[in-house]
């Protein structure tokens, strides 16, 4: 099996109001070095196949069709083998 670690993030061109509020909160706590915060979603999927190419194709399809909205979000993933 493979574990897919998937990050879905708002595209850079899309406003992230939650991220802005978090940046403001960080500044209020003295973390002045922070210039920007972007909030993402993180998914872990267990994929039942031994074939890494098949797992990759499956994950790409899942991201495009379900986990991300292509209008506003981009995605990236890592695969790791699990027993």
């Amino acid at each position: 099996m493979f574990k897919a670690k998937i990050f879905v993030s708002l595209k850079q061109s899309v406003l992230d109001p939650q991220g802005q509020v978090i940046t403001n909160a960080l500044h209020s706590q003295g973390f002045d070095s922070v210039v920007e915060t972007r909030v993402s979603k993180y998914f872990e999927l267990l994929i039942n196949t031994m074939d890494i190419e098949k797992a990759e194709e499956e994950v790409k399809n899942i991201c495009d069709k379900v986990l991300a909205n292509p209008n506003t979000e981009s995605w990236k993933y890592e695969l790791e083998g699990v027993k």
């Binding site: 899309v14 406003l15 109001p17 939650q18 909205n69 209008n71």
Partner: peptide
């Protein structure tokens, strides 16, 4: 798409 309101 419909996004979260700007003021949350």
């Amino acid at each position: 798409a419909l996004m979260m309101n700007k003021h949350l």
